[in-house]
Design a protein around this nucleic acid. Structure first.
Length: 368
DNA sequence: AACTCGTGGAA
DNA sequence: TTTCCAAGAGT
């Protein structure tokens, strides 16, 4: 959709908005707008700081729609900081399976232990104290302080960065650290000019529902009079997109080795991609040209029968790499001492390991 | 500052 | 299909 304002000659608005928009005016428009109506998200119905914390960690780089499938169940399994702190890491990863960025789950778990030991199980309301908690960075500290405790703490996420870039007509990519850096004091002024709990959520709600990356709905924007990018007819080009490097591709055989009716899974290394998660053993296709009985027997060290590739291959796209996976189903005549990638965990058909299993593993199992 | 770390949605 | 990005943190 073409924005008419982009072609309009600068008028009175451009003159009025020729300086940095006033934080008080922005806050005065945003607060009532948010209270007039907003998305009914489950974590907005609680005042439990722990529940807010969990939602903020899950929402890191993850869409609202996705988090809605996890947040409630996670809190049922781990209803308090103490219960989370006391849980096994494998339980936590299991509850996180499919959500991605699994280090968040480990850090949240460690964070709960930290809060239990250092803060008596009570999440502090001070951003500085929150920053000391594992997994809580600058954004999450501001979010918990403002949303859960109504403290005037700033927060800049992707939504807020885009909103501020447009309000102040900052052309650089919004996610660039240097760009976001200049937004923090601006957001602090806005949050402090009203009720922090309302304004923090209002800024993000505006970015998510009105001031969207493409085709923003300026005609219904409560802060259009304060928006410098709109006044300059540059809403469509501010902020500029951030380039990402091309993703390298890697091809693997994904081995589905059956032994006595069970399937062998391996736990990935403690660091790197999908750290500590259970996956099918992967063998680079560079290192094994074909996946027949003899090649697999040599690979596993035991006789293998009925090796056969599946009809369908699996493509899995990560943020900055792509895996092309060819499942190979085979039966081991004797128990392999180990599988490529580590010690085997033999599970029954349909059984899930006690630890976490990423989506890519689910996709592979579905393709068998 | 630049890079790593998952998955899914929208255009 | 490709591109961008989503309530980021840690290094």
């Amino acid at each position: 959709m073409v924005r008419r304002t982009a072609k309009r000659a600068p008028g009175k608005d451009a003159v009025v908005a020729s300086s940095i928009p006033d934080a008080v005016a922005i806050a005065g428009a945003l607060g009532p707008w948010f209270e007039r109506g907003h998305r009914d998200l489950p974590w907005r119905a609680t005042s439990d700081p722990y529940a807010v914390w969990v939602s903020e960690v899950m929402l890191q780089q993850t869409q609202v729609q996705t988090v809605q499938r996890y947040w409630g169940e996670f809190l049922r399994r781990f209803p308090t900081v103490q219960r989370l702190a006391a849980a096994d890491q494998s339980e936590v990863l299991e509850a996180w399976s499919g959500l991605g960025y699994y280090r968040r789950a480990r850090l949240l778990h460690r964070g709960a232990q930290f809060v239990t030991e250092e803060y008596g199980g009570q999440l502090p309301d001070d951003p500085q104290a929150l920053l000391a908690v594992p997994g809580i960075g600058r954004y999450t500290a501001g979010a918990v302080a403002s949303i859960a405790f109504d403290r005037p703490a700033p927060l800049v996420d992707g939504n807020v960065a885009r909103v501020m870039s447009r309000l102040d007509a900052v052309e650089d990519p919004a996610r660039q650290p240097a760009t976001a850096a200049r937004h923090w004091p601006r957001v602090a002024d806005i949050i402090a000019a009203g009720r922090p709990r309302i304004l923090a959520q209002a800024l993000m709600e505006l970015g998510a529902t009105v001031c969207t990356p493409r085709s923003p709905k300026c005609e219904v924007c409560p802060v259009r009079p304060q928006c410098l990018a709109h006044a300059q007819g540059q809403v469509d080009v501010i902020p500029s997109p951030k380039k990402r490097a091309a993703s390298p591709k890697a091809s693997f055989w994904a081995l589905a080795i059956m032994w006595r009716g069970r399937l062998g899974l391996v736990r990935r290394p403690d660091e790197g991609l999908l750290a500590g998660m259970f996956c099918l053993p992967l063998v680079a296709r560079d290192s094994m040209a074909t996946a027949d009985n003899s090649a697999l027997s040599a690979c596993l060290g035991v006789p293998v029968t009925r090796a056969a590739v599946t009809e369908t291959s699996v493509k899995h796209v990560f943020t900055h790499r792509v895996w092309l996976l060819q499942p190979v189903l085979a039966t081991a005549r004797r128990k392999p001492a180990s599988l490529p990638g580590g010690e085997a965990l033999w599970v029954e058909a349909g059984e899930r390991p006690r630890g976490g299993m990423p989506t890519v593993t689910e996709k592979l199992l579905a393709a068998l």
